[in-house]
Design a protein around this nucleic acid. Structure first.
Length: 278
DNA sequence: CGCGCCTCCTGTGTGC
DNA sequence: TGCACACAGGAGGCGC
């Protein structure tokens, strides 16, 4: 998302939207007033900035509202020539009054979506419930340490809770836990302060390295605004590596079924807790 | 209120 | 060859 935000900062900030075209209503389902209202609120508005918190990003507009987006699993925000053929899963198209590149929201699985939200440049209302992410200079380290120790849940589940810490999905959670040498089912109430700080340091390190590498890409769905893939997948230590040797100790990486999902971990570096949180 | 779980969606890969 | 099914997963929302 940070990779996409940087692309939008260069690609659309300072430009004026001519019109918006919603091609699939599901893509704006969080805009409760409907697709026509969404389009009306964007027409003629200038984009003033490109901001992000966790996996949400938003474009404050000169109207005081903001265009808020979440890419979900398969969403893409792409810059494309207005005369370029429409992508098969093009959901929303923004055309600009300078005749330059469109901003196109393309989403195969439609888990993502766009909405126009009040709240503008500060924090749109639809993003208020999301915690800061640890790459944010204003992230409160000791506040996080205290909060995660108050939880009564498993460690990976806590890392995926965007109201506690944002920007962490399944991939980065598994990578951070491997670096911190902690098991995904470790009960959060057993974390000492130093161990909780170790978790945070590992998460921050993984996010910073991923941003540096331009994001993580497994296939053509994970791309920047120019449709290019990042390289962090080449740096993964556990995610997607079931049966392959641990880069630290050589043991076979395991995959556990967890929450109808997967958790990847090294059975030697990240031993299971005696009393795992279910 | 905190926590756990279900559901939304569709393209891809695999096994029979 | 073709069908059935598992899998990918962020997060809203609901039930307990």
């Amino acid at each position: 998302m940070e990779t996409v935000r940087r692309g939008l900062e260069h690609g659309v900030v300072g430009r004026r939207i001519d019109h918006a075209e919603v091609r699939h209503p599901r893509a704006v389902r969080r805009h409760l007033a409907g697709a026509r209202d969404f389009e009306a609120l964007l027409a003629g508005r200038r984009v003033d900035a490109a901001l992000r918190r966790g996996k949400y990003l938003w474009l404050p507009l000169d109207s005081g509202d903001a265009l808020v987006g979440h890419l979900g699993m398969s969403g893409q925000l792409l810059l494309a020539r207005p005369d370029a053929p429409y992508e098969p899963h093009l959901r929303v198209r923004l055309a600009f009054d300078d005749g330059g590149d469109d901003l196109r929201f393309v989403d195969q699985r439609t888990f993502g979506g766009l909405a126009v939200s009040a709240g503008g440049a500060a924090l749109p209302h639809s993003v208020e419930h999301i915690a800061r992410d640890p790459v944010d200079p204003a992230f409160d380290d000791e506040g996080f340490v205290a909060a995660i120790r108050r939880r009564r849940t498993g460690l990976k589940r806590a890392l995926l809770d965007q109201t506690l810490i944002s920007g962490v999905g399944a991939i980065y959670a598994d990578e951070a836990l491997w670096r911190a040498k902690l098991h995904w089912a470790r009960p959060t109430e057993t974390l000492t302060r130093p161990v909780a700080r170790r978790v945070l340091a590992a998460v921050r390190e993984v996010l910073e390295e991923a941003i540096e590498a331009g994001g993580t890409s497994f296939d053509a769905l994970y791309v920047n605004v120019n449709g290019q893939s990042g390289y962090f997948d080449r740096s993964l230590d556990v995610y997607g590596r079931e049966g392959e040797p641990c880069h630290r100790c050589g043991a076979m990486i395991r995959r556990s079924r967890w929450m109808n999902r997967s958790a990847y971990w090294c059975p030697v570096c990240q031993p299971a807790p005696r009393k795992p949180h279910p």
